Amino acid sequence: MIALLLALGSSVAYGCADFLGGLGARKAHVLRTVLIAAPASLAVELLLWPVLGASFSAGALAWGAASGVASAVAFALLYKALAIGPMNVLSPVTALVSAALPVGVGLLQGERLGLAGLLGLPLALVAVVLVSAGHGAGSARPSRTALLTALGAGTAIALQLICLHQAPSDSGVAPLIIGRAVASAVTLTAAGLLRRRLGTERPAYAMSAAAGVLDSLANLMFLLAARSGDLAVVAVITALYPVGTVLLARGVLAERIYRGQLIGLGAAAVAVGLLALP
């Protein structure tokens, strides 16, 4: 139950972070947004170090660094996809990919689910698909570039989560700190190489920083959930984060929620209930 609650908290934080990051990336080049978000995330994790501890073993360093590279790619691709829009299609696409890969890894590593889990896990994946199918035959469909960007973002997110899960369980927040430091370094390097293409627009500083803080908290809750529960279950619950993005897009941007998305929201609630059962 603790793992389930942490995964739900991670899902909510990821959804809010994605919305703010995507919105911020509409005001300036995506790398300018990430340049604000990544250091803000690192600051949060450094503040958590004295509280939760950190052990910088070889495993923590290696898996943390790998997660950082994946995180940097995920940040840039996801915020770019959400900036292109529409948010309430592209966010669920990334979520489906980011859930499917960790679920496969968890099952390959020998995780076993009870009857409720066997029903809840595919239902949760179906819920993500339903939420993403909201536009039906409407005119607001994502471009090919936007869709490919979203698929790439989902793969990068999945690799980040898998790497965090593989880090030693006694390493505290060390994988997060290393990962975020590497992600910040990668982002700074990319920004330096592409500085002439970044434009002159100023990023939404507060919005970008808030996205980074929320992303850091989401990573922390995922890490704690994965250490106390099955990766397959934790990953698929965390992947329900588009629910938050879609609801925020509805409330702030007036993006319509379609019937299929409403069914998906209901399916998500049922899936979470099933996964909560022993």
Results as ranks from 00 to 15, higher is better:
residue 97 V to Y: 01
residue 278 P to T: 02
residue 115 L to R: 07
residue 39 P to L: 13
residue 104 G to R: 11
residue 196 R to T: 15
residue 44 V to G: 00
residue 188 L to G: 02
residue 69 V to T: 12
residue 177 I to A: 02
residue 276 A to H: 13
residue 197 R to P: 01
residue 137 A to G: 13
residue 185 A to V: 15
residue 133 A to G: 04
residue 207 M to A: 15
residue 186 V to C: 15
residue 52 L to G: 09
residue 108 L to D: 09
residue 249 A to K: 06
residue 19 F to K: 02
residue 94 T to G: 06
residue 25 A to M: 07
residue 27 K to R: 15
residue 54 A to V: 01
residue 58 A to I: 11
residue 198 L to W: 12
residue 252 V to Y: 12
residue 76 A to Q: 02
residue 248 L to A: 11
residue 90 L to K: 01
residue 210 A to V: 12
residue 206 A to Q: 14
residue 260 G to W: 14
residue 43 A to T: 02
residue 45 E to G: 09
residue 150 A to R: 01
residue 81 A to D: 04
residue 89 V to R: 08
residue 151 L to P: 12
residue 97 V to K: 04
residue 62 A to M: 10
residue 56 F to I: 08
residue 60 A to H: 03
residue 99 A to W: 04
residue 17 A to Y: 07
residue 183 A to E: 08
residue 147 L to F: 04
residue 146 A to K: 05
residue 86 P to R: 10
residue 231 L to W: 04
residue 51 V to W: 14
residue 194 L to F: 13
residue 274 L to W: 12
residue 8 L to E: 00
residue 278 P to G: 01
residue 258 Y to S: 14
residue 261 Q to S: 12
residue 99 A to D: 06
residue 170 D to Y: 03
residue 74 A to T: 01
residue 186 V to Q: 00
residue 171 S to P: 13
residue 91 S to R: 00
residue 269 A to D: 06
residue 55 S to C: 09
residue 98 S to T: 11
residue 31 L to S: 01
residue 231 L to S: 14
residue 213 V to Y: 11
residue 233 V to Y: 05
residue 258 Y to Q: 14
residue 161 L to M: 15
residue 147 L to K: 03
residue 77 L to I: 09
residue 248 L to R: 05
residue 159 L to C: 15
residue 141 R to P: 08
residue 175 P to H: 00
residue 107 L to E: 09
residue 5 L to N: 00
residue 100 A to D: 00
residue 26 R to D: 08
residue 180 R to Y: 07
residue 135 H to P: 04
residue 243 V to R: 09
residue 107 L to Q: 10
residue 115 L to Q: 00
residue 9 G to Q: 11
residue 117 G to V: 07
residue 178 I to F: 00
residue 6 L to M: 15
residue 270 V to N: 07
residue 90 L to Q: 09
residue 44 V to R: 06
residue 273 G to R: 12
residue 272 V to R: 08
residue 66 A to S: 10
residue 83 A to P: 10
residue 166 Q to R: 15
residue 120 G to L: 06
residue 42 L to D: 02
residue 15 G to V: 00
residue 175 P to L: 02
